[in-house]
Amino acid sequence: MSTTSMQAAIAPAALTSWYEASARTRVRLLLDPESFMEFVGPEKREVSPHLKVFDLPEQFDDGILVGHGSLGGSSVLIAAQEGSFMGGAFGEVHGAKLTGLLRAARDIGSMPVLILFDTGGVRLQEANAGELAIAEIMRAVIEARSAGAKVIGLIGGRAGCYGGGGLIAGCCSALAVSEQGRIAVSGPEVIETNRGVEEFDSRDRALVWRTMGGKHRRLLGAADAFVDDTIQAFRDAALVLLEQVGGFELSTLTNEQVRLEARLRDFGSCADAVDIWTAEGVADAGAVPALPVNQFIAVADHVRRISHDTR
């Protein structure tokens, strides 16, 4: 770790990389200063009951912090996964914290939830508990949204947002991603292991980024906002999305059905992300991966406007 917690505490949000920061640093700098109050924090030592079976070290917060704070003066609930601890994977305690937070949001009905994803998916050592936790979280997201709470996902960490994390992200009201924010169900190594290197070469980093990375997700309409890799940029995006996103009702789902059917119709035969971007009308699709943030946002806003009632 090049950036210590001490330095990060002093560095302003605009200078701190989201990708490099720890979950705690992200939360501290994303929210209004000194506003974060943690629920069942590390001093409670609610560690995983299963890791010791595998002789693996525990972390006092089981790799996620949840709590309450303020963003731009308004109350929010917030959860942040620590991608450096076991790849940010969902275990029993880790998942239960997020489930409880979302159920609080459901019961309150008006307080938004920010989920700072950084996860490889299910924690294998407690696979059944982790898988079920994800199922519970998906349901809890929908219940919270149905009750009127907005649930915003922020994605740009080391571990990306893979496996069941990708499905939870797909349940959120809106997502903000940075270029580093990869979203997928099967990770590159998983596809390669199961289907062979001809199907997907996990060591081809350019392929990984343009298939699963933030730019493609934004151009596809899978993410609502594309941001620079700073905590300030994510904060700004969260504030804007909280203003923009709507509720969750049957029309949201029928709109999403139409949106996804159109995607299959328009891009279903494309072999590569570059073909999709070309089909969308990006003038020089091959140049997209190298585009600086502001130029990319301009291109994305030009070819695909995001409507906020289709997810």
């Binding site: 992200a169 596809i191 298939t211 596809l220 899978a222």
Partner: peptide, 20 residues
Amino acid sequence: MSKRDELLGLNEFLAHLGKC
């Protein structure tokens, strides 16, 4: 598990089914 499914946003399709 395929490049095409991930390229097209499999996470959204699976989440959408679950949501419905």
